[in-house]
Amino acid sequence: MGWFIVKRLTSLIPILFGISLITFILLHLTPGDPAVAYLRASHIPPADETVAALRVELGLDKPLYVQYVEWLGKVVQLDLGMSYVSKKSVWDEIMLHFFPTVQLTLASCILIVVVSLPIGIMSAIYKGKLIDQFSRIIAFVSVSMPAFWFGFLLIYFLSVKLDLFPVLGRGTFAHLVLPSLTLSFAYIGTYMRLLRASVLENLNEPFVMYARARGLRERLIVSRHLLKKSLLPLVTGLGMSLGNMLSGAVIVETVFAWPGMGQLFVTSILTRDYPMIQGCLLFMGVIFVVCNLLVDLAYSFLDPRIRWEGEK
């Protein structure tokens, strides 16, 4: 296990390096001069002298690779620069907005497991019956539904018409319900079907036959033997979805005015706050990679066969 962790960690280094390189290059793709963009964002007319002075101040006069090394040195010390718009540290702003997004994502994960687990298993056991058909339709609609529209439908029917939940913002537990439902909806459909497929696949495995031969009750077979093995794809899938949920959160947070990373990101794009765009992308990229690493580790912990293959 130790060797496997070391191996996975070392494979992370080139990826992280690549992420930093892409984020750095991205900022230099900006049409026009970053110094001019900075002045525009601060409402200072970009005269030639001020631009030249600022270029020196921001280090834009140095060769690109020097800029990259200096920038990377700062990033390692968690200094992502200053926002053009609010003039605050990008890292501080990200930290401020990160927790609400984590909260939203975790709540959605819990929702996904709680809803898709029972329905997925039931639709495998009662294959072709009503519940299976029902879950098939839900799955189809959920992947085709635009999240922002679903969010508005929920707001309209549950908040405005029935007054069950608060419309916007963050605060109490009730505020969390609609956004996490919106975020998790697409995944609930997918995982329901995924779980169904994996249960169906395992139903014909020898270990199930053996359990049946021993005369175990069907319920025991499912809960003791089948569930454990069928959960594996759900674990990997969920972990991989974490990163995509971060991106899905961009839209959901905009709909519900949830003060998270997604909103920060969209606002920085609309105000052309380049250091903030860069910082958010870098941060979310790293989070995504770390999530995938954790999933790999969890998977190899749950399924020892992966570990052996890695050591070969």
């Binding site: 793709l29 991106s247 380049y274 992308l281 995504f288």
Partner: peptide, 23 residues
């Protein structure tokens, strides 16, 4: 290797960032 790096980002976020840069 290019794939590895580009796929290290959630794709929707990378599109967002690109639009942010390009306008």
């Amino acid at each position: 290797r290019i794939c590895d790096i580009l796929m290290a980002f959630p794709s929707f976020l990378l599109s967002l960032a690109l639009i942010g840069i390009l306008g």
